[in-house]
Measured scan of single mutants.
Amino acid sequence: KRVEVKPYVLDDQMCDECQGARCGGKFAPFFCANVTCLQYYCEFCWANIHSRAGREFHKPLVK
């Protein structure tokens, strides 16, 4: 058996893009583990950032 640990998915993290400004101060539910991102995102910022060319295939890690 093999266990994969993702220590970078933490609870209670603010969106790295808007710092809570676009999501009413809620914590960010998404983390993008792609090396070009490596950031936490609220729903609004995830949709906005990941609609751009080259990022549309990134998969979010959801808390």
Rank of each mutant, 00 (worst) to 15 (best):
Y41G: 00
V3I: 10
Y41S: 02
D16P: 08
Y41V: 02
D16F: 15
R2N: 15
Q13H: 09
D16M: 09
F27A: 14
A21G: 09
A28M: 03
Y41M: 10
C23E: 07
C42D: 02
C32F: 00
D12P: 08
P60S: 05
D12R: 07
C37V: 00
K59L: 06
R55G: 07
R55I: 15
C23T: 09
K1W: 00
F44D: 08
F57Q: 15
L38R: 13
A47E: 12
Q19R: 11
L38A: 13
N34K: 08
H50I: 00
K63N: 09
Y40P: 01
F57G: 15
F27N: 09
D16W: 11
V5S: 15
F27D: 08
C37I: 02
G20C: 03
T36L: 08
L61I: 14
V62S: 09
R52I: 13
F31N: 02
A53T: 14
F57V: 14
F30I: 07
R2T: 08
A53I: 09
A28L: 03
T36M: 09
W46K: 00
C37R: 02
L10E: 14
A28P: 06
R2C: 05
R2G: 09
K63S: 11
G54P: 12
A47H: 07
C18K: 01
A53Q: 15
K59A: 08
D11W: 05
A28E: 05
P29C: 07
K1C: 05
V5P: 15
P60V: 04
Q13R: 12
K6I: 04
I49K: 08
H50D: 03
R2D: 12
Q19S: 10
K1G: 06
E43L: 03
F57N: 15
C23V: 04
A21Y: 04
Q13F: 05
R52F: 10
R55P: 03
F30Y: 12
Y41C: 04
F31D: 00
S51V: 11
R22H: 14
F30E: 03
F31L: 04
C42K: 00
I49Y: 13
V5K: 08
F31T: 02
P60N: 10
E43P: 06
R22I: 05
C42M: 00
G54S: 12
A21E: 11
F44C: 13
M14K: 14
K1N: 15
G24I: 03
G24D: 13
L61M: 12
N48I: 11
E17R: 10
T36D: 15
E17Q: 14
C18A: 01
E56N: 08
L10C: 10
G54C: 06
Q13A: 11
C37G: 02
T36G: 14
L38C: 14
P60F: 00
Q39G: 13
R52Y: 09
K59I: 05
E4Q: 09
M14A: 09
K1Q: 05
Y40I: 02
K6G: 11
W46Y: 07
V5D: 13
S51Y: 07
Y8W: 09
G25I: 02
L10N: 12
A28K: 09
C37Q: 00
T36P: 10
A28W: 03
A21H: 05
A47L: 07
V3E: 14
E56G: 09
A28Q: 04
Y40S: 07
D12H: 13
E43V: 05
V9A: 11
A33K: 07
K6P: 09
Y41F: 09
V9Q: 14
G20M: 01
G54Y: 07
Q39P: 01
V35G: 14
W46L: 04
G54D: 13
C42A: 02
C23D: 13
T36W: 04
C15Y: 02
F30S: 06
K63D: 02
H50S: 01
P60A: 10
C37W: 00
F57C: 14
E43C: 05
Y8T: 11
I49L: 11
A28N: 03
R22W: 04
A53R: 13
F30Q: 12
V3A: 14
Q13G: 03
R2I: 13
D11K: 10
K63V: 08
Y41T: 04
Y8G: 15
C23S: 10
K1L: 03
D16V: 11
E4W: 03
R52S: 14
A47I: 10
Y8N: 15
W46T: 02
F27Q: 10
K26W: 03
V35K: 12
V9G: 09
C32A: 00
D12W: 06
V5T: 12
Q19Y: 06
G24V: 09
D16I: 13
L10Q: 15
K1Y: 05
F44G: 12
K59V: 06
Y40D: 03
E56F: 05
N34T: 07
P60R: 10
D11N: 11
V9K: 12
L10S: 14
C45D: 01
L61V: 14
V3S: 12
W46Q: 02
K63I: 04
E4K: 05
S51G: 13
C45H: 01
N34M: 03
C37H: 04
Q39E: 08
E17M: 06
V3P: 11
K59C: 06
C15S: 03
C45I: 00
G54T: 08
C32P: 01
E17N: 08
F27W: 07
C18R: 02
R52C: 09
A28Y: 00
E43R: 08
K59T: 11
F44N: 10
L38K: 15
R2M: 11
S51D: 15
L38Y: 15
V3L: 07
F44V: 13
W46E: 01
T36R: 07
H58G: 02
G25E: 06
L38V: 09
R2L: 04
Y8P: 14
P7F: 03
R22E: 06
G25R: 09
H58F: 00
K26I: 05
K59G: 05
E56P: 04
A47N: 15
P29R: 10
Y8E: 15
H58Y: 00
C32K: 02
C32D: 02
K26T: 10
I49M: 06
P7M: 05
R55E: 07
A21K: 14
H50V: 00
F30L: 11
R52K: 15
W46S: 02
G25K: 12
K26M: 09
F31A: 02
L61C: 14
P7V: 01
W46I: 03
Y40M: 05
C23A: 07
E17H: 12
F44W: 10
F31H: 02
C42F: 01
F57R: 14
K26N: 08
E17S: 10
N34D: 10
E4C: 04
N34I: 01
A47Y: 08
G25C: 04
P29L: 05
G25M: 08
